[in-house]
Nucleic acid binder design. Structure first.
Lengths: 126, 126
DNA sequence: CATATAATTCAATCCAGATTGAACTATATG
DNA sequence: CATATAGTTCAATCTGGATTGAATTATATG
């Protein structure tokens, strides 16, 4: 047979990484805030009620997952602005929609006694 | 103001629960297998290379999150068949698509020096 | 240069939850 | 009833990763 039914498809590997990244409540909240236009560590920290080093940690995880981008302020380079990576957001959407597509649902594979018996047999049995 | 920008929207709470449930690699794999039509604990265990009690644990978590359903075999009630809950799958799709909708992206909110200065001022500064 | 600020890095601690092994439940079959 | 099977429950252990506090970097300003 061509493709293993048992293995998780390769496309799903990237999705798994993204899901792990987004499953953290504070990180999901950060994405929400970034989408709303909030951008620097300090403001994110205020909104989350979290210290700057913790915010920094979560921002790094999000950045390493390719979900957000960073950019220094042109006038005062101490400030760093974060934003959602639009391409990644679209890829995430597509990947998720493909994996959890209800149309993917296949009929049950025969496994237990009820499936093994033919209709005629199961009729006799009853 | 009507709604807090800081708080995670209520709709996102359910999504957060689902994401935490699906972020576990074996559970994501189980969803994949169920979508492919695999259904009983034993076959899932074979595919995952995991003992039945561990499979059972993950199935419970998925069930408690409302993502899967269970049904006993009509002929031999020792067998239990699991399947993805189609309604939950659709709700998950909708919820995720709404939260990560690229169209949600708002312009950056003023925060640092570059944003605070008016165009004229920043022009002078340069 | 000295001081302040925005943010990161580092090391230590803590904790939720995955994993494991053994006992248990429920059902079927001889 | 005794034995086997499919699966669950329970308690203990282990581990990845969130959290915390202190030190560090980079930049700006007087």
């Amino acid at each position: 047979m061509s493709h293993e039914l048992n293995a998780l498809p390769a496309d799903a590997e990237q999705l798994a990484v993204w899901l792990k990244t987004l499953a953290e409540p504070k990180r999901l909240h950060i994405i929400h805030l970034l989408l709303e236009g909030v951008q620097c560590n300090c403001e994110l920290g205020d909104a989350l009620g979290a210290p700057p080093n913790l915010v920094s940690h979560h921002l790094r995880v999000l950045h390493e997952a390719g979900l957000i981008e960073m950019e220094r302020d042109a006038l005062d380079a101490r400030w760093i602005y974060y934003s959602v990576n639009p391409e990644a957001l679209r890829a995430l959407q597509d990947s998720f929609a493909a994996f959890f597509d209800p149309a993917r649902m296949k009929p049950r594979r025969v496994c237990g006694p009820a499936g093994v018996l033919k209709p005629a047999e199961s009729a006799l049995k009853v």
